[in-house]
Amino acid sequence: MPIRIADNLPARRTLEAESVIVMGETEAARQDIRPLRIALLNLMPDKITTETQIARLLGATPLQIELELVRLSGHVSKTTSAGHIAEFYRPFRDVRAERFDGLIVTGAPVETMDYGEVTYWDELRQIFDWSQTLCHRLFTICWGAMAALAHFHGVPKHALGAKAHGVFPHLNRAPASPWLRGMSDIVPVPVSRWSEVRRDDLPETVKVLLDSDEVGPCLVDDPAHRAIHMFNHLEYDTLTLDTEYRRDGERIVPRHYYPDDDPAQLPRNTWRTYGHQLFGNWINEVYQTTPFDLNAIA
């Protein structure tokens, strides 16, 4: 089954070129089926790239997905055109009375700041609380994951002396977990961050699923909040780390990314399969456990 997005969303052309089945509003209305409603709170500066990456992984699952793009009500993006935001994104204040099968919260380029210094911190905390009442499952990524753990559990984040940047092998610590179904014992994951969450700071109710000796926890399960939190980026494209490396003035070469660690060579994508598995497992778990009647989500 396909992913349902706006007909003129830029991601549509990219996904169709990759043979991801995309459905428009008219086609979706003809199917006698309840799609899964997934809200994406996109906090990344390059919103078009991020919405394409997430839609690609959701659209590869065997279920019909209705993707709702959500933005903060009290924050104006300076890096994505106002026209794109106005056409495709709904402010949180307009969706807060609605129910969703799942909510995905992305990272944001504010990880070196204290949470209280982030201008939209209060609204984000309201969204996390809302996810516990009108959303069935929560999936947070990078800074969004750190912020969620700080909000729900008081877990601090710690600044790194140097940017963690590259593709690092992670140990699968819970192969029986539904979130890691089908994954190998070692999972390569792109990492790109200036801060970290440490194992010792996590409460006993939060279980580490993927872990690295080099860069710490990657994926944790937070069953008390029906959430998984991923500190890294299985959604990344092949060249995303390369783009960041060039953008940052080629100061920190991403580790384990280029062949022979040579930035002149084209990187190889070793994580794509695991990104599809993680998002597919999440969607499957949402589908298996969400009520058929959206009004029953509470």
Rank of each mutant, 00 (worst) to 15 (best):
F139S: 08
F139M: 13
T140I: 10
I141L: 03
I141P: 00
C142L: 12
C142S: 15
C142P: 14
C142G: 15
W143F: 14
G144K: 11
G144M: 09
A145R: 07
A145Y: 04
M146N: 14
M146I: 14
M146R: 15
A147S: 14
A148W: 06
A148G: 13
A148M: 11
A150I: 04
H151V: 05
H151Y: 00
H151D: 05
H151T: 05
F152V: 08
H153C: 07
G154I: 07
G154N: 10
G154Y: 10
P156V: 06
H158N: 07
L160G: 06
G161D: 11
G161E: 14
A162E: 13
K163P: 10
V167T: 06
F168D: 00
P169W: 04
P169A: 11
P169K: 11
P169M: 08
H170F: 04
L171M: 09
L171W: 06
N172F: 03
N172K: 02
N172D: 04
R173C: 12
A174N: 06
S177H: 15
P178T: 12
P178D: 10
G182R: 04
G182M: 07
G182Y: 09
G182Q: 02
M183H: 00
M183V: 00
M183Y: 01
M183Q: 00
M183N: 01
S184Y: 06
S184K: 13
I186F: 03
I186P: 00
I186W: 03
P188W: 01
V189N: 01
P190V: 03
V191L: 01
S192G: 01
R193E: 09
R193H: 10
W194V: 09
E196F: 13
R199C: 13
D200R: 08
D200L: 02
D200Y: 04
D200E: 13
D201F: 01
L202R: 06
L202N: 02
P203R: 08
V206K: 05
V206M: 11
V206C: 09
K207E: 15
K207A: 12
V208S: 04
L209S: 13
L209E: 07
L209P: 05
L210R: 04
L210M: 02
D211E: 09
S212T: 02
S212G: 01
D213Y: 12
E214S: 13
V215M: 04
G216I: 07
P217S: 07
P217Q: 08
C218G: 10
C218R: 02
L219V: 14
L219F: 02
V220K: 03
D221E: 15
D222N: 12
P223C: 10
P223N: 03
P223H: 07
R226V: 08
H229L: 15
F231S: 03
F231L: 06
F231A: 01
F231D: 03
